[in-house]
Amino acid sequence: MKKATLAASLMVIAIAVGLMGSPVMAAEVSQGKCIQYDEATHKLTIEAYDTQFSKEFPYGQSTGATEIFDVSTAAIGIHPEPGDILRLAWVEKDSVRSGLKVMNVSKQDLRKK
């Protein structure tokens, strides 16, 4: 039995090392207020927020900059509407910010669930 446990442990370590070594596509995260969501062109424009969270600004404060994402292949949560606070995970492909996931932070407001 000890041998089997040892073998199992070694296997787990081997898998862990293998996983560690595998390349991970690092995704960036942006959060901000939705300005426009064009469903025809799959373009999502947000007003970016920073990470200065406080009671008055639970989602951060506006940096004034706008960011445009291509969300044609992204998994989109609750339908984004102008004014919603969104959080996106994205990667840069050929100088286009391609969205992976779009979370509707303000509408989901997980805390209340």
């Binding site: 995260v29 998994a75 989109i76 949560g77 609750i78 339908h79 996931k101 779009v102 509707n104 989901q108």
Partner: peptide, 8 residues
């Protein structure tokens, strides 16, 4: 509505 979660 689908719930999508993005880790910050």
């Amino acid at each position: 509505g689908n719930i999508v979660v993005v880790a910050d």
